[in-house]
Write a protein that binds this DNA or RNA. Structure first.
Lengths: 144, 144
DNA sequence: GGACATACGGAAAAAATTATCCGTATCCGA
DNA sequence: TCGGATACGGATAATTTTTTCCGTATGTCC
């Protein structure tokens, strides 16, 4: 793990959670391991777009953080399996909530990315409030 | 926003959600705005460890993704306020779940970081399974 | 006029993360 | 003996994100 130069705070839960599953593939690894994809090579085949190295590193970090547990079989050729710890399992509802929210807005999101325009179906109420502060001063326009 | 060279997939919800709130301060910004901290300068004072620039950039991205809405008051000195859109509000439960999970394991996590040792209170069941595959071969040791 | 407030943005440096490429070792099967 | 499977790790490059430092503009208060 890279030695950080800027210390992190971890004063809010978000920072803690992000430190643990913020990596590019970590949540997916948790998902896969929980669904029975246990061996390193299997995981690599399951996520071919990730390099073998990063998966290894992120598995190490997940293990270091107590999310997964590595079981080493002293065989030849080598065999390794990963399992969620009970601590790791405690994270499943959160991961699921994140995943579900994402799925729900995936299509909308993709369209947004293509259009490169803000066009969320649910979102954009745009209105200009005119408050007391406006009349209190000279109200110079500086629109965007 | 930075033009990426490696295209992202967004085939799973996690990737979508991460694209939206993965930024270092984004979830905190959502939290603050939802709690009435609306003006840019207020937000900067609320997160002094973040540079003004990044907060600006991440606010832009949140706006672009339809999570927040920027209300510009044509006054002088300039006045701007951010509000969650209804789309942004749909994210609150997820953010809360993440935050809560993190808070719950914050202390354990901090100790882990200090010790630089895997010592999760709940976690480490370590056991070595011996399966058929072991006897099937010569079982050479390659322990760690 | 000078110091402060408001809000914004470009450019480049620094930091952090991820990718690529090299290597180790053993065993199995053709 | 050669090619593939298993698993792992170092070193460096590339990419992405964040920080730092510079600038713009206008208005108020002393």
């Amino acid at each position: 793990m890279y030695e950080k130069k800027i210390p992190k705070n971890f004063t809010c839960g978000m920072a803690v959670l992000m430190e643990i599953i913020g990596g590019k593939w970590k949540s997916y690894l948790i998902y896969l391991i929980n669904n029975g994809v246990r061996r390193p090579a299997e995981l690599q085949r399951a996520v071919p777009s990730a390099s073998r190295r990063v998966l290894d590193l992120q598995l190490r970090e997940l293990e270091f953080h107590g999310i997964i547990r590595r079981v080493i079989y002293p065989e030849m050729p080598p065999k390794v399996e990963y399992y969620l710890t009970s601590f790791g399992e405690s994270m499943l509802p959160v991961v699921a909530a994140m995943e579900n929210w994402g799925i729900r807005y995936m299509e909308t999101f993709k369209q947004l990315m293509e259009n490169k325009q803000l066009a969320m179906g649910t979102a954009p109420e745009v209105e200009l409030k005119k408050t007391a502060t406006l009349s209190r001063r000279k109200a110079v326009a500086k629109a965007v």
